[in-house]
Design a protein around this nucleic acid. Sequence first.
DNA 1: TTTTATAAATTGGCTTTACCAAAAGGACCC
DNA 2: GGGTCCTTTTGGTAAAGCCAATTTATAAAA
Lengths: 251, 251
Amino acid sequence: MENQQRSSDRLYQDVARQLLDELAAGRYPVGSRLPAERDLALRFNVSRPTVREAIIALEVQGLVEVRIGSGAYVLRRPGEGDAPGFNVSAFELTEARLLFEGEAAALAAAQATDEDLAEIEGLVRQIAAENLDPNGTERADRAFHLAIARATRNSAIYNAIEELWNLRSTSPEAALLHEKARHANVKPVVEEHSAVLEALRARDPAAARAAMRAHLSAVLETLLFATEEKALEEARRATQAKRDRYGRATA
Amino acid sequence: MENQQRSSDRLYQDVARQLLDELAAGRYPVGSRLPAERDLALRFNVSRPTVREAIIALEVQGLVEVRIGSGAYVLRRPGEGDAPGFNVSAFELTEARLLFEGEAAALAAAQATDEDLAEIEGLVRQIAAENLDPNGTERADRAFHLAIARATRNSAIYNAIEELWNLRSTSPEAALLHEKARHANVKPVVEEHSAVLEALRARDPAAARAAMRAHLSAVLETLLFATEEKALEEARRATQAKRDRYGRATA
DNA sequence: TTTTATAAATTGGCTTTACCAAAAGGACCC
DNA sequence: GGGTCCTTTTGGTAAAGCCAATTTATAAAA
């Protein structure tokens, strides 16, 4: 029996995450068989249905293939051969959002109707409510950003940004990191969202861009801190230069 | 109780598939709640764990969100985000590219390797060659823009921009308009592409952004002129304000 | 009447037990 | 060696039960 280090609302996610880590670490090579459900249940100290749920989560992601009466076999290592766009890290995703949503906010500042602004204001309040709830979701956060994208009145922009948000839940790596960030109690800060709203209200594209970039820069920071030490070092090397650039690009 | 029409090795896949169909059909709109697990178990004539497995399969795909003690809520319709908008106009598309590719160029200016620059330089020459050929394609043009996107070293950004280019051929309206623009003998101007390349060579993000925006503003203009008179008027009204904004936002 | 507590019902989370069916492994016979 | 049959292992699924979070209904209080 092993510890259940991380804790989550849903047990199967913990198990799936640990298996994912082991797959990524190469503990179970491609083609090899995972331990039997019953054994995994013992090892993780959970019931067999929970193990089944975790394995199904891996199966849906195309990581393993389950053969009746035989076992669950590794198809690929996480991150390899993913569908296009599957293999984006949380850093890449947030960097892309930083650039794209910054521009979207600027455009929205000149396009948003009073109805848009009212909707966004309501979502800021919902984000505040979500923040108070320790088990709160990020639904209002997503809705906030998509509402701004919609306010551009450009469906191509909206689709692109929505796709980035979808990747966040689709990409195993990104989902993993965001999950960790959430558990580290780093939640969307209301002030940052409010700043964006105020800039939109003022119809100030430059301010809206700056506020949105500042918000997503902060998100990028939380992602860095949510990363474990070894991964952190590598990531920091890779993103340090980028963070510098944001300063310049924002100016 | 309903039939179990399809048969599969794994029962949860049947249930997930049926739920997926119902989501696609709009039976459960975005934001609404799925029936309780116990009810679904009755309806599909399976056990509750099987229903749980099916819902987890949807959850992993980012289709629903499960809230403890409340239910499973629809996040999006399947296909949304997977294959974004058919209904995008050439103007929206180009506006999105103006914003996104401008930022990508700025990022690429600080990221591009000498190999990237060499490749891009070669593509500029190919674009020049395409311009001379009356039957030439736009392949080099596309490759030029994607090479810059790739030089950002951010796959999320690359995927988003590539998707915009794909929409150009997917969206009937956009394809039609671009076709007209081509026949009007308005082809990508080499000088504009060269300006982008020079800014990249100078590692100047602001200049790269400006050059890319200038290029795509010009494309937007050619689209306007390629439009028939009546459509033109309407489009001009709708985009005049936007063109003004670009000037401000670029500064 | 409105608001606020409180209790009951609903809903997902997870475990345990049990049995079936497919696959794999091994013993035995030819 | 090569089959054949039986046993073991492994996943597939069902059923029942209890817990915890949430929601809703209800009643009390302001």
